[in-house]
């Protein structure tokens, strides 16, 4: 934490918390770098996000394009696409998740070690997109997995993916190691694995994970004018 925060639980690293930004900047000018463990940890994590090499559909081509020379996702430290979920930090759900594919996506997510993050890339991964009416299309991967960043578009441009990645970096940098608002992966009470749906006779069973997603409340336009 860069600023002292009295509302939080006792800080285990008070030295960094007791120093203001101006003072730190002053020290930096004299060649002394000060940081907190939390900050250093988040800085390292946010700049070396390894995505899983996992393309579902059209968006995967734009994901590859983001990794090539023109857009160069390596500038953000995320160029190391790992084919194995065991080595990955980030799952970019790039494309339509069909009902036949959904159990495998959940299983891949369960195989990823914590801390892990999920980006829903493209309209299909968010809500089913143009294929929403399909009988075999899952209407959004957030019915089974907690999604951190949504990137709209069909497909999103590589710049949009980079922007989503930057948002994720920002989110990681703001995470806390301790306290009541500690990051998900540091807490024992938050699940890291999710139940894998099974193939039913007409649909997936269950069709959604109620702990992750409930249908949104209806929006009624009752106001006059």
């Amino acid at each position: 934490m860069s600023t002292a925060d009295n509302t939080r639980a006792p800080d285990p690293f008070p030295a960094a918390g007791n120093i203001s930004d101006d003072e730190r900047e002053e020290l930096r000018r004299h060649g002394i770098l000060m940081t907190s463990l939390e900050e250093l940890y988040n800085w390292g994590r946010s700049n070396s996000i390894w995505p899983i090499q996992f393309g579902l559909a059209c968006c995967a081509i734009e994901m590859i394009a983001a990794a090539t020379a023109r857009f160069d996702i390596a500038r953000f430290g995320a160029e190391i696409f790992r084919p194995s979920p065991r080595q990955a930090d980030l799952m970019i759900v790039s494309g339509t998740v069909t009902k036949k594919m959904a159990p495998q996506v959940v299983r891949l997510w369960n195989q990823m070690p914590e801390p892990k993050y999920c980006i829903a890339m493209g309209a299909c991964a968010i809500s089913g997109g143009p294929f929403k009416q399909g009988y075999n299309v899952l209407k959004g991967i957030d019915r089974f997995l907690p999604v951190d960043i949504y990137i709209p578009g069909c497909p999103p441009r590589p710049e949009a993916l980079l922007n989503g990645l930057m948002q994720l970096q920002k989110k990681i940098r703001g995470e806390h190691l301790t306290g009541p608002d500690a990051a998900r992966h540091t807490r024992a009470d938050v699940p890291g694995e999710f139940p894998v749906p099974t193939f039913g006779e007409h649909d997936l069973e269950p069709t959604r994970n109620p702990e992750v997603w409930t249908p949104p409340a209806p929006i009624t336009r009752s106001g006059k004018g």
Binding site: L56, T98, M101, G134, Y135, N136
Partner: peptide, 8 residues
Amino acid sequence: FGYLHRNH
């Protein structure tokens, strides 16, 4: 097959 069967 069928992992990307989008019912086109």
